[in-house]
Design a protein around this nucleic acid. Structure first.
Lengths: 187, 187
DNA sequence: ACCTGAACACCGTTCAAGT
DNA sequence: ACCTGAACACCGTTCAAGT
C-alpha cells in the first residue's frame, strides 16, 4: 500500500478514536457531570490517557469540541434571525433558541460564558455569532426597537445569565424569564 | 480549674481554629480560586485535615460559612427595602445591593445559586430573605409596579443570573444590566 | 472529647518506551 | 508519526491512634 493510503488510514483511525473519546465525554455530561476527568475518558474510550491529551490539550479544548455542533446551530439561528423581516420576531427567536440550545447542551453553556478563552475554531464561530447579532441589533436600533447602547456582547452575556437563572431552578420558567429580558431590552 | 473552664477553653480554642480555617479559605478565594481543597486549607491553617472535616463536613458547608456574613447583610438590605416607602426605590436598592454583595463575595454568589442544598443556618437566612422579598413584591404588585406573576424565588434566580452575566465580562456593566432587569420586571 | 496525619483511592499531567 | 500507560504530584475522605 502507498504512503497516502497509510496516512488516510491513520487519519481515519484517529478520527474514530476522537469520536470515541467525545462519545465517552458526552456520556458523562449526559449523566449530569461536567467534570470530564481525562483518565476516566481515556479508560471509557479504550485509549491511553496520552491520546486524550494529544487530541484535547486542555479541558477547555475538549469542552469546545463537545460544544462545536451546538455553537454552529446557534450561529445559523442568529444568521437567520438577522435576515428576518420582523426584527422583533428575529430577536425573540434568537433568544429562545439560545436558551434552548444551552439548556440541551451544558458544554455550550460553559463555552458561551468563557468565549474569551476560546481556541481558533471556537473563536471563528464566536466572531460569526457576534457579527450576526450585531447586524440584528443594528436593524433593531434603527427601528427604535431596543435600547441604543446594547451590544452583541451584552446580548450574549445576558443570555448566559438568563440560562443560569433558569438552570438553578425549574426549566419551565425559561419562557417567562425570556419574556422579562425581552421587555427589559426595549428602549 | 473547673470543668466549665475547661469546656470554655475548648470552645475558645475551637473557635480560634475555626477562624483560622475560614481565613485560609478566604485567602484562596481572594486569590481567585473557588476550589477550596480541604488538604490545602488544613495545611494553611496548621491543623489536621480531619479537623477541617469536623468543622465543615462538606465543601458546601464551608462555602456557607464563608458566605454567612454576606448573606446576613443581604437579608438586612431586603428587610429595609420591604419597609421603604417608595416601593420602586426599595426594589432597585435590593437588586443593586444583591449585585454588589455577590460581586464582592464569590462564595455568596455560589451559595445564593444553590440555596436549595443549604444547611440549617443558611436555610434560615434564606427563609428570612424570601419573606422580606415577598413582602416587597406584594406591595409592588398592589401598586401595579411589577409583573403580577413574579415570585421571591424568581427575583433571587434572576439576580443570580444577572451576576453571572456581569462576572463573565466587565464588572462596570453591572448598573446597565440592573437597569435592563428592572425595566423587564415592570408589568 | 477532640485532634492528628497516615493511608487509600482517584485525577491531572508528563514522558520514556513501544509500535 | 502516533500511542501506551507507568510515574509522580496532588486532592478527597476515612479512621486508627494519640492527647
Amino acid at each position: 500500500m502507498s504512503a497516502t493510503t497509510n496516512a488516510e488510514n491513520l487519519r481515519a483511525d484517529s478520527a474514530r478514536v476522537r469520536a470515541r473519546m467525545l462519545a465517552a465525554a458526552r456520556e458523562r455530561i449526559a449523566a449530569g457531570d461536567l467534570d470530564l476527568p481525562m483518565n476516566a475518558i481515556a479508560k471509557a474510550a479504550g485509549v491511553g490517557v496520552g491520546t486524550v491529551y494529544r487530541h484535547f490539550p486542555t479541558r477547555q479544548a475538549l469542552l469546545e469540541s463537545l460544544a462545536a455542533q451546538s455553537l454552529e446551530n446557534l450561529v445559523a439561528v442568529a444568521v437567520a434571525a438577522a435576515r428576518e423581516p420582523d426584527v422583533g420576531s428575529g430577536l425573540a427567536a434568537l433568544l429562545r433558541a439560545g436558551m434552548r440550545i444551552q439548556l440541551s447542551d451544558p458544554a455550550l453553556a460553559e463555552v458561551l460564558s468563557t468565549i474569551d478563552a476560546a481556541g481558533d475554531e471556537t473563536a471563528d464561530l464566536s466572531r460569526d455569532l457576534a457579527a450576526a447579532i450585531t447586524t440584528l441589533l443594528d436593524r433593531a436600533r434603527t427601528e427604535g426597537a431596543i435600547r441604543p447602547d446594547l451590544t452583541a456582547d451584552d446580548l450574549r452575556r445576558l443570555l448566559c445569565g438568563l440560562q443560569h437563572a433558569v438552570r438553578i431552578g425549574a426549566v419551565d420558567d425559561a419562557d417567562r424569564y425570556l419574556d422579562i429580558l425581552l421587555a427589559g431590552l426595549r428602549p
